[in-house]
């Protein structure tokens, strides 16, 4: 960071010397990056929107958006300083990072409720949660499994002798009837299922209906950066919120933007994704308080599940790991669609 401030001082000195007015503004921008949890898609379009409209520049940020990938851990990249901000896996990955002692803090939560659901066929053997007992179930063993365990436990179903298998990339085993219950994110796999099976033939089991919630897609920042540049963190949040509200207000433009970023994507799927993401981002506490609200009740309920299942060695300091000051500094009215 020292070198960075030295460089910006140098830049400032140089531009003052040149007395070139337009250059001053460019030199003042702080170079920062946002690491996403996956490749460009509508799930992240608000950030692209904020960048395209110059909202980050208005806050003094020259922001680069770096895509994620299957083998990248956003928390690690932010902790090492390779990236300034990150949109990481979710509350679960933040807990794990804090437990490992990584110097990061969550400054906002994007997906207010569990972004995935469990799906069975409307005419299949699984009609209610009790039917899970004798069903063959696949789920992701990267967090979703604990949501499932939590749902089962909340309904007094003993999972020890159940048939729960890790889910691979494809939902085809479910479509073909080899599996009774499949896990699907509301914005991606569920779309594929709708295409192949038809929405009317699907039955959804929403974790929230069974007393379990798992907020995901967490915005994180490195502790050093936040301590040194609180005003830039504040600016990043302000610009991101504006970008997202613009994306919701003009979805056509938002999808255009993402299709420009990744032209091989399927437009109808991206449109569906944006609609679903909007619902998830404005659900729960965010419905009242606005985008990126950190709902500590939901966070602690997710935390409790992971403690109960010994995924975490013990409780972590949630107050330190989740810092609402930046997002709360933006009035709720400015964080909600008109």
């Amino acid at each position: 960071m020292k070198r960075r401030s030295f460089l910006s001082t140098l830049g400032l000195a140089a531009s003052t010397a040149m007395l070139a007015a337009p250059a001053v503004q460019a030199a003042d921008l702080e170079s920062v990056s946002l690491r996403l949890k996956w490749l460009p898609q509508a799930q992240f379009v608000g950030f692209y929107m904020a960048k395209a409209k110059g909202y980050y520049e208005d806050e003094g940020l020259d922001l680069a958006i770096n895509p994620g990938g299957p083998n990248l851990l956003t928390e690690n990249l932010v902790a090492t300083g390779a990236d300034t901000f990150g949109l990481s896996g979710g509350t679960d990955s933040v807990f794990a990072a804090i437990e490992k002692g990584l110097p990061i803090t969550c400054i906002g939560i994007s997906h207010q409720e569990t972004p995935f659901v469990f799906v069975s066929k409307a005419d299949g053997p699984v009609q209610e949660i009790a039917d899970f007992k004798d069903a063959s179930i696949t789920t992701w063993f990267t967090g979703a499994n604990y949501v499932l365990f939590g749902m089962l436990a909340a309904n007094d179903i003993d999972r020890t002798d159940m048939n729960i298998q890790p889910q691979q990339v494809s939902v085809t085993p479910f479509v073909d009837g080899q599996v009774d219950v499949v896990t699907a994110t509301r914005y991606n796999e569920y779309y594929t299922l709708m295409q192949r099976v038809g929405e009317e033939n699907l039955k959804r089991f929403v974790p929230e209906d069974f007393g379990v919630s798992f907020p995901r897609d967490t915005l994180i920042v490195g502790n050093d950066f936040a301590a040194e540049h609180p005003e830039l963190v504040q600016g990043f949040m302000r610009a991101s919120v504006k970008g997202w509200l613009d994306a919701f207000a003009d979805k056509e433009a938002a999808i255009d933007l993402i299709m420009k970023e990744a032209p091989t994507l399927e437009r109808p799927h991206q449109e569906f994704m944006l609609d679903e993401v909007e619902k998830i981002m404005l659900a729960g506490a965010a419905a009242e308080q606005g985008l990126f609200t950190i709902d500590m009740d939901a966070v602690s309920s997710a935390h409790q599940i992971l403690v109960d299942y010994d995924v975490l060695g013990g409780p972590i300091d949630l107050e330190a790991a989740f810092d609402s000051q930046f997002i709360d500094a933006i009035p709720s009215a400015e964080r909600l669609p008109e």
């Binding site: 996956w38 490749l39 895509p67 083998n71 939902v171 085809t172 091989t264």
Partner: peptide
């Protein structure tokens, strides 16, 4: 290219796999 890149056939493959878009995968 499966480690956080933006261009390349590996990236297109990954995007196709994520959305289970068979046409994109085969492309």
């Amino acid at each position: 290219e499966w480690f956080g890149d933006t261009t390349g056939l590996g990236v297109l493959l990954l995007q196709g796999m994520y959305a289970e878009n068979m046409v994109a995968i085969w492309a």
